[in-house]
């Protein structure tokens, strides 16, 4: 009998759903006056985030320069913003090594868009419209501090390490996790978010400073990061920022990422100098968001594993 493993693992209706969502997203963006762009997948630098691992390859010329598959189109899109592109979006493949599981495929489809002049709340409004356009429920909005307090009884900006350890252990966290920020991350992602499952669709906004990533910081007290995440039935769908535009602060965050990578014996990636130069020349104040399209398809098709929405998941690619 002929080998059948060449077949896609999903049926025709799943392929059609993806095609329809891609078409609708483009239509929505077009109507909103957001321009579609394409940026490189292969580039000489990559994300320095200590928890993201990039695939590496080499250009086979004499110089043999090292290249990375992009983990997100963010830096290139911000270079376009700095060059005066105006509002832009991209549907691109992103690649992350070591990420494989129920909600992760090492290669996945990301919808990323940027809105000069918007703050994170205005961008959340626009995401709401997009979700509505795709036939999805309007998300509730709750701040990180409020949802954390509601579900754990503690203020995340004031909680002690001891209290985090207790919450973590009670939720079955391995005793090897001792770092304050890792504990906070665990309690938020495994304790708070898993309890968001029943709340349908939720935007959580204004994260603790340590989890700012590439978001700007608020001037208030306590300091929070102008960052939001969209969860649908407890699944992380999108992550957005009121973008950090300050090149010095950005450089500091890159350096602190690299320090952490070095401490954890992880590969040290080169800092993206061209991106920093773009910030120096002046990137317009913008809000931006990355939305996982495969996960959105999981929600729409009630899939319980990401491979149910991919024609050829990694083990069949």
């Amino acid at each position: 009998m002929a080998n059948l493993d060449w077949n896609p693992v999903v049926d025709q209706s799943t392929l059609k759903l993806r095609a329809e969502i891609l078409r609708k997203v483009r239509q929505f963006m077009n109507e909103a006056g957001i321009m579609e762009v394409e940026t490189p997948i292969l580039a000489s630098s990559t994300a320095t985030d200590p928890n993201i691992c990039s695939f590496e390859t080499r250009l086979h010329t004499e110089s043999g320069s090292r290249l990375y598959l992009q983990t997100s189109p963010e830096f290139h899109m911000k270079r376009l913003l700095a060059a005066g592109s105006g509002s832009i979006f991209q549907i691109s493949r992103a690649f992350r090594d070591e990420e494989s599981g129920r909600y992760h495929n090492p290669e996945f489809t990301m919808l990323e868009w940027y809105r000069p002049g918007f703050d994170h709340h205005e961008l959340m409004n626009e995401i709401e419209s997009l979700l509505d356009y795709l036939g999805l429920q309007k998300p509730a909005r709750i701040s990180y501090a409020d949802v954390f307090l509601e579900l754990t009884g503690f203020d995340p900006h004031a909680i002690s390490r001891k209290q985090l350890i207790k919450l973590g252990r009670d939720a079955g966290l391995s005793p090897a996790v001792e770092d304050y920020n890792e504990l906070l991350d665990f309690v938020f992602n495994h304790y708070v978010i898993s309890r968001l499952r029943d709340k349908g669709s939720v935007f959580v906004f204004d994260f603790p400073q340590a989890q700012a990533a590439l978001a700007r910081l608020s001037g208030g007290e306590p300091v929070t990061a102008a960052r939001f995440e969209l969860f649908i039935q407890g699944l992380e769908i999108a992550n957005g920022f009121h973008e950090l535009c300050d090149p010095h602060e950005q450089k500091q965050r890159f350096k602190s990422d690299l320090q952490q990578r070095s401490k954890q014996n992880k590969t040290l990636y080169p800092i993206d100098r061209k991106f920093l130069s773009a910030l120096e020349s002046g990137m317009p104040e913008s809000a931006g968001v990355a939305l996982g399209l495969d996960r959105l398809l999981m929600v729409l098709s009630k899939a319980s594993h990401i491979r149910e929405v991919l024609a050829f998941p990694i083990n069949n690619a």
Binding site: D49, E99, G101, R102, H104, E182, F186, H190, A213
Partner: peptide, 14 residues
């Protein structure tokens, strides 16, 4: 064994 990782943040195995 379930791999759990937020977009930004530490990866865990539940």
């Amino acid at each position: 064994n379930e791999y759990v990782k937020p977009g930004k943040g530490q990866a865990f195995n539940r």
